[in-house]
Every structure is written in C-alpha cells, then in structure tokens.
Amino acid sequence: MKKKPFVMLIVLLLAAAMLAACGDDKDEKKDEAETETPQIETGTLEFYANGEDFVRQGFVSKDGWNLSFDQLYITLTDIKAYQTDPPYDAESGGELQANVTVGIEGTHTVDLAAGDADADPILIGTAADAPVGHYNALSWRMVQAPEGEAAGYTLLLIGTAEKDGESIAFTIKLENEYEYVCGEYVGDERKGFVEADATADAEMTFHFDHIFGDADTPPDDSLNTGALGFDPLAALAEDGVLDVDMAGLETALSADDYQMLVDILPTLGHVGEGHCHEVQTG
C-alpha cells in the first residue's frame, strides 16, 4: 500500500513533464521564428501610446462630470509587434503565431495627457531594422512605474472634475498590472506596414471612457452601463480634493462599484478600436 503514493507521484511527474514538453515545443517554435528571420530588407517601426482625445481634450462622464486631465501617467514594458499568420484573433485569445517579432527594450512611463488638445500620440520607442512586412499584432504589459512621480502605480490620473459649480481636484492612483495581446489596429488608417528604408507606426490605445462613461454615448449603451462614472468617486472627495489609491477605493467604494472598477481596468488596452486579449498577471 505504501507504493501507491510513490506510483501516483511518478505518474504526475510524467504527465507534468509531457505537458511541459508541449510548452517547450511552442517556445522553441517561437524562438525559431524569431531567429530564422532571413536577411531581408528592413525599415523602422515606431511604437506609440494614445489616450485619445478623451485624455488630451477632456470629456463629460456619463453622469455629467466635466473631466480634464493635467497628467495621466501610464507605464508600459515588454512592448512587441508581430507579423502573424494566421492573423491573431484577440476575440478567441488563442496562440499568437508570429513569423517575425520586433520590440523595444525597457520600461517606459509616459504622460498620455502631454501636449495640447491636438497633440499627437506619445512616441514610446523605435525598433530600427524591423524586417519589412505587416505587423498585424501587438503585445505589451502595463506595470507599476519603477520610479518618478508615478512610482508604484500602473496608472496615475491627475486632473479636475467639474459639475454644477462643484470642482474636485482628483489624483487617482491604480496599481493593478495587466498584460495585453492584440490583433491588428482598427481605425481609419491601417498601421504596421513596414517598407524598406521607411518608417511605419504601431499604436497602443487606451480607452478611459470605459472607466467614466461618455455623455455623448446613449445611456443604455454597454459602454455606459458598464462604466463606473465619476459620481462614486466624487462622493469620496473631501474639501474638493480626491486623492485615492486602489486600497482606498476598495475601502471607500461600495463592493459593487469597486468590483466594477476592477472589471473595467483590464478592458482599457486596445489597438485603435480593436479589442485586446488581457491575460491576468497579478
């Protein structure tokens, strides 16, 4: 009878080894794809982060708060672009099959509200010598800033909310980290076509109307019905000031409102209007 646990252990180890081998095989294939890039023509791929006009110009939340942002810091790392075939489908979230992968090194904290109301998206970095072709998938991680004003936070929203003569100076600090895997950019112009000795761009887009809702969208639209709005946050302000982090929000918000916020945050990452697959990392 004493042999039974031993046999079970052996069997479990064999099964785990087999599954691990399958995983290794995929990794090897990915590595091969990355290293087998033939000597072909190259161009430059620029990586941008975009908080859209919502952040640059401000907007009215679903519950009537006029929101403007002085700074909106976001920290991104492991930023990569892929030439995938078949095209990666973020809706199904299956395995991303890349023929070519390029990326930029380092962890980058940027202010999505930088510049005037008509400012361009924020340039994060550049991949020189990117093999020509169509980079039709992107991935990145949103992580806590290692240093600076936003240190310890993935997102730091600083701005003003105004409604019916009331003004609230808000500082909202969010720590949750996320990993996004996305397909092709969806928008007016296609992105990611790298041609020889030319420059193309790839864009990580962040939809902050998902948190606050948008007064310009019908109230019964899923965007608004699934958004927190600003009223629950305004209720936490004292003397016109709101300075809160996730722990504070968990304590002060109702359980339903806090859960709604937790559910919304993974949906911020997009490629234009194209959804991303978010893999919970923490």
Binding site: H210, G226, H270, H275, E278, V279
Partner: peptide, 12 residues
Amino acid sequence: SAGAVWAHGVKI
C-alpha cells in the same frame, strides 16, 4: 478563473 478577461464583453 484566472484565465482570459474580455475587453468590454463584446464579440463580433
């Protein structure tokens, strides 16, 4: 339960 989370719950 720690698997995929869908952005905005929309599928086309």
